[in-house]
Design a protein around this nucleic acid. Structure first.
Length: 113
DNA sequence: TGTTTGACAAGCA
DNA sequence: CTGCTTGCCAAAC
């Protein structure tokens, strides 16, 4: 299924494109994505973009978490996000994820097609 | 057009 | 470890 990228701002397009590259069973942090966009301070803006995410399933925004390993938020509810993560065999202890294990490599997200 | 908002991050007490 | 403060940004008001 294709996404109408035209209806989004350039910034949002970039964010969605990167998030779509996060492989199953892996996660990325808002800050990590922000850096790839060029500046770590984009973190908040990234969260904002995902909050307005029109296709929460197509764009795996549940794989985007906070830099300290906490889950963060989710449009459809934090619980739903946790459920999706567990489905991908990602362990969650005390509402936290082991970044050393599940954090995706930056290089993977930088590849654009 | 100026201000507020928010799914963040890092530093400090 | 918990809680508060400051810095920054794109969008929505």
């Amino acid at each position: 299924m294709k996404i109408d990228l035209d209806k989004f701002s350039e910034f949002e397009k970039k964010v969605y494109n990167i998030v779509k590259k996060i492989p199953e069973g892996k996660v990325a942090t808002y800050g990590q994505i922000a850096k790839i966009l060029g500046n770590k301070y984009y973190a908040r803006a990234v969260g904002n973009a995902l909050n307005k995410n029109p296709y929460p399933i197509i764009i795996p925004c549940h794989r985007v978490i906070k830099s300290n390993g906490e889950i963060g938020g989710f449009k459809k509810g934090i619980h739903e996000k946790i459920k999706l993560l567990k489905k991908e065999n990602i362990e969650i202890k005390n509402n936290k994820i082991n970044l050393d294990k599940y954090l995706v490599n930056d290089a993977v997200l930088k590849i654009n097609e």
